[in-house]
């Protein structure tokens, strides 16, 4: 997820940070012959992996600017024959996606679904993870194992029973219903990730806090949470992406409520029943990517800060 491959990452917004501290944390890695060779190898592997990930995305990006007939008749790489011939590009695909009826509504619906469905599991998962990590109660480990085990359950199995409950309680086709569904699906992973992170925090910290008279809630809010910003940020990104990109859960639980249909549903209906007009999806993919990208870049500083903080404390 962290895209900085260079040893001295240009930290966005990190003005006052002593960058060399990071280098000191890995002494001796550079300089020796073996070190250089293994570093070169590492960089090569990383570069190849990046390429493997970026190339298809690049293909989609290029295709999104090509007219339908060109997409249908030749590969996207053919533009490199003469890349500066601007007549071969078009904005028609983007126009078609954005001018669709109800795009703004779908964007808004996606946000309405995703933001609470990201924050709820973070909050609840944080509480639960703190309990699993630092409170002693009977059956703690067994319960935790059960939670971790739930990650293995395919969510498709839960559709029918949950939708049955929803349609009896009137939650089907409502935002609350879909928030709860995503929260439920996201919680096992949230608890697992945060518990492991909380577990690495120094226990003396909490002990001294309790001696000073702090309640577990205070210890959680004042100590555990602020120290876990990087873990929370990564969890937030995971959960946000999962919910933002979700099509199936929305399709099942929202039923026919098209006023609440998220972007994914709206965009999937751009393609015909036989898969005609798929070229529009290339543009649609980039339209849908905008929000997650903004989120990622705005939260990236927390990742880096987290790594740095750990390194300095040593």
């Amino acid at each position: 997820m962290i895209s900085t491959g260079s040893p001295n990452p240009a930290v966005p917004g990190g003005k006052h940070r002593p960058a060399p501290a990071f280098r000191l944390a890995v002494p001796g890695a550079a300089g020796t012959v073996g070190g250089v060779a293994s570093q070169a190898f590492l960089h090569l592997v990383i570069a190849l992996m990046c390429l493997a990930w970026i190339l298809p995305t690049l293909g989609v990006l290029v295709s999104s600017f090509r007219p339908a007939s060109a997409v249908a008749n030749s590969g996207w790489w053919t533009i490199f024959a003469n890349p500066f011939d601007l007549t071969q590009y078009t904005l028609a695909n983007y126009q078609q996606v954005l001018e669709q009826n109800g795009m703004a509504q779908a964007f808004w619906s996606s946000l309405l679904i995703t933001v609470p469905a990201t924050l709820l599991p973070m909050l609840l998962g944080g509480f639960a993870a703190f309990g699993f990590a630092w409170l002693r109660f009977p059956g703690r480990d067994a319960l935790f194992l059960l939670m971790v085990g739930l990650m293995v359950v395919p969510l498709q199995m839960t559709f029918i029973p949950i939708l049955r409950i929803y349609s009896r309680t009137g939650l089907a086709g409502t935002l609350v219903g879909i928030w709860l569904a995503h929260t439920g699906y996201g919680l096992p992973f949230a608890i697992y990730l945060l518990r492991n992170f909380f577990g690495t925090l120094p226990g003396e910290l909490f002990e001294s806090a309790y001696i000073d008279g702090a309640s577990p809630l205070t210890a959680f809010l004042r100590l555990a949470l602020p120290m876990s910003v990087p873990a929370l940020a990564s969890l937030g990104i995971f959960q946000f992406l999962w919910v933002w990109n979700d099509l199936l859960v929305a399709l099942i639980y929202l039923g026919g409520t098209s006023s609440l249909a998220p972007l994914t549903l709206k965009l999937s209906s751009l393609v015909g029943s036989y898969g005609q007009e798929w070229h529009v999806l290339t543009a649609a993919a980039f339209v849908a990517m905008v929000v997650p990208l903004i989120l990622f870049f705005s939260l990236q500083r927390y990742f880096v800060r987290g790594i740095l903080a750990g390194a300095v404390k040593g």
Binding site: I160, L163, R164, S167, R168, G255, G256, L265, S268
Partner: peptide
Amino acid sequence: VEFTGTRDTVAVLVTRLQAGNPPD
């Protein structure tokens, strides 16, 4: 009229039928 279009019509319909929440 609220129309939901999906190429997974059959899967979605069967699921919603079994859950007692079919479309009209």
